[in-house]
Design a protein around this nucleic acid. Structure first.
Lengths: 138, 138
DNA sequence: GTGAGTGCAAAACATTTGCAAAAAT
DNA sequence: ATTTTTGCAAATGTTTTGCACTCAC
């Protein structure tokens, strides 16, 4: 009984094989594959020999998102990608050449966003900042 | 022959009724309806008595985007929205209560983004910043 | 006239849902 | 035993595409 079980219980979700497996997959992805689509997760399950339906993958990912275990991103790709929520917020830089995703967090920008929202009579509930970049030739 | 025709020709697109009409609709939308989905445009066409197919709306909007006449946004809504490109870049604040979209442009954030990208060995090609906000109760 | 543009219906995706079977507590 | 969860297939919503027809030049 691994750590995953505790996380699931804490989130109020029953410990089932699909949920444990999906959580493991999301947690085990390396730096380069941190952001997986539902389809990616589904294929990873099949490769691992687990017989889980794609519909279940979608359901579980949505439950994880609701539970705060996972963050959903809608980049310009036409489909959602998911990543394990590790507490601290961060933004993304997506390299248009390599597809690499770099995470960053800048206090200056964060602060400025709050000021701008407030200036317009709003408070920020959430935000999404994605830089689409290209490698600098030197 | 209105201004639209010139814009279309300049973009290398033949002047056809659907293209002119769609351009007019996008240009004529008030502050509140600046961001229209393909479906929105389609309905506006029908209301104006124009018999244009939804597929054509999609095709034309994509052509406009390629030509730089229009900007496509993918907010968290599950479908794309389009707005007339007026040259200057701006970011968006979307009110989760009312659905209102406020545009803003902050030099501090813009500058900071470039610095961050450069610091990671990248140059920014494009970026997307959306603040999801709620009205401040006072 | 000829090639680009259009409408329609069908296809293609990503995602969701209904329901009976299976599993968790 | 009961309540959740799952798998499958079918439905959904958005966007794209194939093709015969039409229009702009």
């Amino acid at each position: 009984m691994a750590v995953e079980n505790q996380e699931l219980r804490k989130a109020g979700l029953k410990v089932t094989l699909p949920r444990v497996k999906i959580l493991q997959i999301l947690e085990s992805t390396g730096e380069t594959t941190q952001h997986m689509s539902a389809e990616d997760v589904y294929r990873a399950l099949l490769e691992a020999g687990e017989d889980v339906g794609l519909a279940t993958v979608y359901r579980v990912l949505t439950q994880f998102e609701t539970a705060g275990l996972v963050t959903r991103h809608n980049f310009e790709t036409g489909h959602s990608v998911f990543e394990i929520a590790r507490g601290e917020h961060h933004d993304h830089m997506v390299c248009l050449d390599s597809g690499d995703v770099v995470e960053f967090n800048d206090p200056v920008i964060e602060q400025r966003q709050r000021e701008i929202a407030e200036h317009h009579g709003f408070e920020i509930v959430d935000h999404s900042l994605v830089l689409y970049v290209r490698k600098l030739k030197r």
